[in-house]
Amino acid sequence: MKYTRDELIAAVSKQMPKERWKHTQGVMETAVWLAEKYGADPEKADLAAILHDVSKYWPVKEMEAIIRENDHLNQELLEYDKPLWHSEVGYFVAKRDYGVEDTEVLDAIRYHTSGRVGMTLLDKVVCLADYMEPGRDFPGVNNIRELANHSLEEALLAGFESTIGFLLSKRQIIYPMTILARNDLVRQIGRLNE
């Protein structure tokens, strides 16, 4: 990687408003806690958390151009809500601009908004940390935090179901990968409970 942790924090924090950087700090703290609790690598969790929203406040046209110009990025995302784009662009930028080469870290950045089938432990940790960091305040977040004390999968499932329920209540389109990720977690939980 091209940057020390402190240099990375300095570079990334300039990419967003102060309030969003507070969120990122909360995700960093929560991701490390979840990683330590559930056996993921805390350093990788910290790195992915630092970078997870790196491009969130970039101009939409710039994010769109990056996705369109790079065939290995998920072109299908362009058909869905723009707030999903920053995770794909963040994955690309972490690699291109910050020299992150660890596939596990890059994937945790890439899938932190949508989830995916077969989420890795690090994917789950970063995605859940983003849902439940201390600054988050939405109906059901305290339930997600309580579940996280006992089960990573149950807490993440509650997070996905909260998002899906919210989108349904607003009659918004739901990105299919999130539905598939939710269904995969239900299967995993079923196997754990057998």
Results as ranks from 00 to 15, higher is better:
residue 61 K to F: 10
residue 95 K to L: 15
residue 115 G to N: 02
residue 81 D to Q: 07
residue 80 Y to E: 00
residue 146 E to T: 15
residue 141 V to Q: 03
residue 97 D to T: 08
residue 150 H to T: 10
residue 81 D to N: 01
residue 99 G to M: 12
residue 149 N to P: 00
residue 61 K to T: 15
residue 118 G to Q: 07
residue 106 L to P: 08
residue 141 V to D: 03
residue 68 R to A: 10
residue 140 G to K: 04
residue 143 N to E: 15
residue 96 R to M: 13
residue 106 L to Y: 08
residue 97 D to W: 05
residue 124 K to I: 00
residue 69 E to Y: 14
residue 71 D to G: 12
residue 68 R to I: 15
residue 81 D to E: 04
residue 91 Y to D: 00
residue 131 Y to H: 14
residue 126 V to A: 06
residue 106 L to T: 08
residue 135 G to Q: 03
residue 90 G to L: 08
residue 140 G to D: 02
residue 70 N to T: 09
residue 104 E to G: 07
residue 88 E to D: 07
residue 129 A to H: 09
residue 81 D to R: 10
residue 88 E to F: 13
residue 85 W to F: 04
residue 87 S to L: 05
residue 70 N to H: 15
residue 129 A to R: 13
residue 117 V to G: 11
residue 147 L to G: 04
residue 73 L to C: 05
residue 87 S to R: 06
residue 158 A to N: 08
residue 95 K to R: 15
residue 140 G to P: 01
residue 153 E to T: 06
residue 100 V to C: 10
residue 152 L to Y: 11
residue 113 T to Q: 13
residue 92 F to G: 11
residue 111 Y to E: 00
residue 152 L to E: 07
residue 77 L to K: 09
residue 105 V to D: 02
residue 91 Y to I: 02
residue 88 E to V: 02
residue 63 M to K: 15
residue 154 E to R: 14
residue 156 L to F: 09
residue 79 E to V: 14
residue 131 Y to K: 14
residue 102 D to E: 00
residue 118 G to T: 08
residue 83 P to W: 11
residue 103 T to F: 01
residue 64 E to F: 05
residue 129 A to I: 06
residue 85 W to E: 02
residue 121 L to N: 07
residue 156 L to A: 08
residue 107 D to P: 02
residue 84 L to H: 12
residue 129 A to C: 04
residue 157 L to P: 06
residue 111 Y to P: 03
residue 129 A to D: 05
residue 87 S to W: 12
residue 127 C to M: 06
